[in-house]
């Protein structure tokens, strides 16, 4: 079963148009949704959570995301970019609210996370730092036996140590084979560490969606001169960056002569150069 199946997703805001987007995430995998600010990542996630009306079809865990929205969310762990819990509540109160909301709520697991994250149980949520708030949001998402985690920019604005800790937690979650994650971010290095699939969104368009390893195998970085680059088959070059000192391009390895020295490309370079070209 696919954890996520999106077909022909479209949303028009007048000055911004998202899609059409086709995207599939097999069960047990992690997909990174990469894009600059305003690329359409949050809009895609909002459509998945039935927060906006949009064209196309969305199936999560085999169910129609719009028709079975509330029931479906019992199996989803949602972590928005801003954990919008009422400011005056403390962790004990939050736990009680969630226990009354999720049928599979695991109180022990939640408090285990609280200990692991060193979150104070009696302090008001408004006194928490951004990292603490995000950890609480993740703990809530992980404490009701969710099968699919959807995280919108969870590492944005956090220091590298907290980001690394969050990446570790997400890795732990996917040890269970049926667990899947969709994580959006513009911090590509975080996604590169954990994702099996990568989807690039740029100005509302899905530029690319494939397995990370296949992308890294298929594409490489060619450093050469603008003249040589011009002579290459146009379909081989996905994106290029020309400076006074030379040129570098993302190329499809199988479409350039073997005599060229193609270096491995990182997902971050791949995204930046492709987005600039688009």
């Amino acid at each position: 079963m696919n954890a996520i199946e999106i077909k022909g997703l479209q949303k028009n805001y007048g000055d911004f148009k998202l899609g059409p987007i086709d995207l599939t995430l097999p069960e047990g995998c992690i997909m990174g949704l990469i894009g600059e600010n305003g690329a359409g990542k949050s809009t895609t996630i909002k459509a998945m959570l039935d927060m906006i009306t949009a064209g196309g079809s969305i199936r999560l865990l085999g169910k129609d995301a719009r028709e079975s929205s509330a029931l479906l969310k019992q199996d989803l762990g949602i972590v928005p970019d801003e954990i919008g819990l009422p400011e005056g509540l403390n962790i004990r109160q939050v736990e009680k609210i969630m226990a009354d909301s999720f049928r599979n709520w695991d109180s022990k697991q939640f408090y285990d996370y609280m200990k692991r994250f060193n979150l104070p149980e009696k302090k008001a949520f408004k006194t928490f730092s951004k990292g603490m708030k995000m950890k609480l949001g993740i703990a809530i998402a992980l404490s009701h036996k969710a099968k699919l985690l959807i995280l919108d920019e969870p590492t944005s604005g956090l220091d590298p140590l907290v980001r690394d800790e969050i990446v570790g937690i997400l890795n732990d979650f996917t040890r269970e084979e049926s667990h899947s994650i969709l994580i959006s971010s513009h911090i590509v290095s975080d996604l590169e560490k954990i994702c099996d699939y990568i989807a690039f969104l740029h100005k509302g368009k899905l530029m690319l969606c494939d397995e990370k390893d296949r992308l890294l195998e298929r594409y490489g970085l060619l450093q050469t001169t603008p003249e040589i680059l011009r002579d290459l088959d146009a379909s081989a070059v996905l994106g290029k960056r020309v400076t006074d000192y030379g040129a570098e391009a993302i190329v499809a390895r199988d479409k350039v002569p073997q005599s060229f020295e193609i270096q491995p490309v990182s997902i971050e370079e791949l995204f930046i150069i492709m987005a600039k070209e688009a």
Partner: peptide, 21 residues
Amino acid sequence: SADEVSHWERYMHGLPYSRSA
């Protein structure tokens, strides 16, 4: 009004509640 300030309304949409509820 306080819910709006804390963005609770948006967060709530990640919880298993229908719009009717």
